[in-house]
């Protein structure tokens, strides 16, 4: 599957993706979350950044 990085417009090639998964852009290093648009197509959005209450 091919995506465009929403941060730097770089090309991202991903094999199997599932919703909620995090990819990082090979060009700019941004952390991107896999989501679905209204039509059910996968798209990428910039992921939430680490919060103070994150982790186990």
């Amino acid at each position: 599957m091919k995506f465009k990085c929403p941060e730097c417009d770089g090309d991202i090639d991903a094999k199997e993706v599932i919703e909620g998964e995090i990819l990082s852009c090979p060009d700019c290093g941004a952390e991107l979350e896999v989501t679905k648009d209204k039509k059910g197509n996968f798209e990428l959005r910039v992921a939430e950044s680490e919060g103070e209450d994150w982790g186990e």
Binding site: I18, E19, G20, E21, I22, E33, V34, T35, A47, E48
Partner: peptide, 26 residues
């Protein structure tokens, strides 16, 4: 979930393998 880490992926896979309906909810 809020992020699908390896653990969440594996939980989803495990349910699939067992034929259990598991709804992932963001």
């Amino acid at each position: 979930y809020d992020r699908v880490r390896v653990e969440e992926k594996e939980i989803i896979n495990a349910a699939q393998k067992k034929g259990v309906e598991l709804r992932p909810i963001d």
